[in-house]
Amino acid sequence: MTRKQRRLYFVLLGMLALGGAVALVLTAISDSLVYFYSPTDIVEQRIPEGRRMRIGGLVENDSLVKDGKTVTFKVTDVTNAVPVTYTGVLPDLFREGQGVVVEGRMDKGGQFKATEVLAKHDENYMPKEVADALKKSGQWNDGKQQK
């Protein structure tokens, strides 16, 4: 084996070992790398009230009620939904049927008191005319959005 080959194998093996180690670590701490939980996680895991956390999902259609500066709505992942109340300014993209991430605490009554509301947008970009045409022709695929 020439020195060049030895160096090549050394670098390749090193990268492989490093990649494997990083993959293992990332898998191990995967839980803390998620930015938010889904409503199903909340319902199934019975996360204690009062703990600060983020929930992400879609704003359920026809669930949005505005009362002055306070809004209530439901965050859903189709299977489960969590009711949320929030007082403050909403981001421009916030609307029913769109992705949302809320940060706050669960109260005793099972209501999620949000202190921050972030809108999540999907990966589809198109002009309004194209979106309207797609909706008209029935090719609009809502299922593509955040689960």
Binding site: S30, V34, Y35, F36, L118, E123, Y125
Partner: peptide, 14 residues
């Protein structure tokens, strides 16, 4: 793709 993030997934290369 691996974790849920605030950032949306890829649009062009997918």
């Amino acid at each position: 793709d691996w974790w849920n993030t605030l950032h949306q997934p890829a649009s062009v290369v997918k």
